[in-house]
Amino acid sequence: MSMLSHHIELNGQPYHYLGAGKSGAPVLLFLHGFPEYSGAWADLAPRFSHEYHCIAPDQRGYGQSWAPAEVAEYHVTKLVGDLCALLDHLGAEQATVVGHDWGAAVAYALAFMAPDRVRQLVILNGVHPFPFQRAMAAGGAQTDASQYIHTLKRDGAEDWLAANDFEKLQQLFAAKMDQSWLSGDRLEAYKTEWARPGRLRGMVNWYRASPLKLGGPGERIKDIPEIPLDRVRIKMPHLLIWGPDDRALLPEATEGLEELCDNLTRVEIPGTDHWIIHQNPDAVERIMKDWLSL
């Protein structure tokens, strides 16, 4: 089953999502990361459409959704607000939320800022902000692996990414990982989304708006703000599916996650990395369906 394109307004601004399945069924909300868009889920999401109303939005700044130029418009409260408004539009009190990369960060934020809207949480190679900040501030391997964030925050980063037919953006996709899935018509579809006016600025504004702190290579940061753990606790059932060959998000970025979750299940898929949903969607589907049926 293919996904259908929907153009709506959220809080007076244009918003786009792909949908599959029957309206009125439980919502399965798929959240993409950087530098993807709703189409990232076009292979995986329809596999759940017999039991769920599968929704994959272009998040703010991406694809065919609203892409404001101001950095302040990408504060996490606004990103979470978009998802709550989308669920209201769908007439859904709750959803099972699936997030990857930045989509995982927003999924986590939704889970602890509006826990009544999240029935279950599924994360694929994404990180909770608390252990991720701890790992980035440690001055170790995750600090070094995250140095690209400084580049993306710089003025003019969007123009640098777009130059030479998105050469640097494609290199970021690879980052010593398997990029063989991004080619041909799929790559051209991604380029179409990246080329929409203002979208690359919107995409990097997610990084610019982030409050997380990162030093230079090997630099340890000691003045990390104290956050009461009860404010960032994940109370609903939580599945973490991990590609162990990820070179952007390292295992230490999830250390201590159990301390923040009431009910966490971890599963690894050998031979996959950060782009796990493209590299082995069959295994992802099987693991998710087994867990969701519990």
Rank of each mutant, 00 (worst) to 15 (best):
T272A: 05
D223R: 14
N164A: 15
L229S: 11
R233D: 01
D245M: 11
H32Q: 13
A135L: 08
R266Y: 08
D155V: 07
I224R: 15
V98L: 03
S210K: 09
L200P: 05
P57N: 02
S65T: 05
H6N: 12
P129K: 03
D116Y: 01
L10M: 10
A248F: 15
A67D: 10
S146C: 10
L31M: 01
E9W: 07
Q170N: 11
A157N: 11
N125V: 04
Y17W: 13
V27K: 08
A137T: 10
A138L: 11
T272F: 07
V76I: 12
D58C: 05
S146G: 08
Y17P: 06
E188N: 10
V204P: 02
P237G: 01
G215S: 06
K289V: 13
S65C: 04
I234T: 04
Y207F: 15
R196Y: 08
R233L: 07
V267P: 00
Q142Y: 00
G243F: 02
D82C: 12
W160C: 08
P270A: 09
T192M: 12
P251S: 04
A45N: 06
Q179S: 14
P68N: 06
G126E: 03
D178I: 01
T192A: 15
Q133K: 11
M203S: 06
G140K: 11
I287C: 08
E255K: 06
T265E: 14
K191R: 14
E219A: 10
A114R: 14
R220V: 14
A111T: 15
G24I: 07
E9F: 13
